[in-house]
Design a protein around this nucleic acid. Structure first.
Length: 417
RNA sequence: GUGGGCGUAGCUCAGAUUGGUAGAGCAUCGGACUGUGGCUCCGAUGGUCGGGGGUUCAAAUCCCCUCGUCCACCCCA
């Protein structure tokens, strides 16, 4: 049997409805704050990700799906969404548009990793990018939109972690501080941290090995070495959030795995997820567009892991989506079968969710099925009803039954919502 | 990429230690009840025992390889 590739999944009904509902709400909330959708290719020139995400990052270095096309060009399945948006902005001269520009995307990303719960080789991200505004207000708006979406999904237990990564100019100075602080204790660090010390010292900060955390506790947080301008920026973001009542915690150890972030960085974590608890990550990237050869343009954005989000969706939201009422239309006998689709069309046009029984099963087994499948009601159309121009409507919840004109069913249906 | 757990019916699992005709519950379909669900009873359908190879008269069971999945590390969404 041919099986799907490792780390990919088939989204089946009814769970696919949850995905639709999440995406629909995200579109609604984003659009209500002035964002529009952008759709970029699922694969891009490899160079784009090397230059934006960063050569030394794990994503680029060992997690990309890279291949050559028939003309020998190196292409890569996108491992994240921001790079493609930045590329598209430059290539399509969106510079000419009025800014700031709010662009959102929803779609699959690809990373070659060992799959486990909440981590897949193909996963979906819902992202929002805010281009052309360098103010703290822009970062605050992103966090607000995020908070609004999560609140409307019914979450009340998520935590927003926030940190200041400083400006790129601060980075060498900070790396120096890290190296100096840890110079004498290199041997005491785990082997991963010893490697990080050379390649990407920032990442030593969020090592989860307890012995490392003890040692790293002596290292001053990035924000202490950060420029005055970046400190004022992040402080202003925090002040906005406090004013808005958007809860967050300062996490001075928070570091992100993509090189383009600076100043404001944040994560949203769910206590209901295990190891892969990060539901959303984001931050400011004022140098990304210029690093890719475009003009100087500030930007800020986030990406939500849709797979993880759906995994921890609050029960009330799920019930609302999965509990949608449906009417089961059951024809009995050939004359009724001849009429049944026309009737379904009529009801469908009037806003009824109607499912026609097609297999000719007995009324008894149809009712049995209706009960199992959770239909709200069954419309029975037999010879008797046909003769009188009526249908028998059996309400499965109330266990009651009545006969009414076929044309009256949509109103009856609405009245019971 | 590293370490470990687990793959038997659509689902949850027994059967493996000691090789000997593949099982149960649930689900599905049908009947009891000829046009009325949920409960009960009866019956039926359903399996290359993840795949391949080896040992053996005989393998779900023992050995090797492989694929998948889950957990931890790593990483991030």
């Amino acid at each position: 049997m041919i099986q799907r590739p490792r780390g990919t999944r088939d989204l089946l009904p009814p769970e696919s409805r949850l995905w639709q509902a999440v995406e629909e709400l995200a579109r609604t909330v984003f659009a209500s704050f002035g964002a529009d959708e952008i759709r970029t290719p699922a694969f891009e020139p490899t160079e784009l990700f090397v230059r934006s995400v960063g050569e030394t990052t794990d994503i680029v270095h060992k997690e990309m799906y890279t291949f050559e096309d028939r003309k020998g060009r190196s292409l890569t399945l996108r491992p994240e969404g921001t790079a493609g948006v930045a590329r598209a902005w430059i290539e399509n001269r969106l510079h000419d548009r009025s800014h700031p520009l709010r662009l959102y995307y929803i779609g699959p990303m690809f990373r070659y990793e060992r799959a486990q719960q909440g981590r897949y080789r193909q996963f979906s991200q819902i992202g929002l990018e805010l281009l052309g505004a360098d103010s703290p207000l822009a970062d605050a708006e992103l966090l607000l939109v995020l908070h609004e979406l999560f609140t409307r999904l019914g979450f009340d237990d998520l935590q927003v972690h926030l940190n200041n990564l400083g400006d790129p100019e601060d980075r060498p100075r900070y790396q120096q501080v890290v190296r100096e602080t840890l110079a004498g204790r290199r041997e005491a660090l785990c082997s991963d941290c010893q490697r990080r010390l050379d390649e990407n010292p920032l990442r030593v900060l969020d090592c989860k090995v307890p012995s490392c955390q003890v040692i790293v506790a002596d290292v001053p947080p990035v924000s202490d070495v950060a420029s005055e301008a970046s400190r004022q920026h992040v402080a202003a973001v925090e002040a906005q959030l406090e004013r808005l009542g958007v809860p967050f915690v300062r996490n001075r150890r928070l570091v992100r795995g993509l090189d383009y972030y600076l100043r404001t960085v944040f994560e949203v974590v769910s206590p209901r997820l295990g190891t892969n608890a990060v539901l959303c990550g984001g931050g400011r990237y004022d140098r990304l567009i210029s690093d890719l050869g475009g003009p100087s343009l500030p930007g800020s954005g986030f990406a939500i892991g849709e797979d993880r989000l759906v995994d921890v969706l609050p029960e009330p939201f799920k019930e609302r989506v999965l509990g949608a009422r449906r009417l089961y239309l059951v024809p009995l006998g050939a004359p009724a079968q001849a009429e049944v689709l026309a009737l379904a069309r009529e009801w469908s046009r009037a806003g009824v969710t109607v499912e026609v029984e097609l297999t000719g099963r007995s009324l008894k087994s149809a009712l049995k099925r209706a009960d199992k499948e959770g239909f709200a009601a069954v419309a029975i159309l037999g010879d008797d009803e046909l003769a009188g121009g009526v249908v028998a409507i059996r309400d499965l919840v109330a266990s009651s039954q009545q006969v009414m004109a076929a044309a009256a069913v949509p109103d009856w249906w609405k009245g019971r919502g």
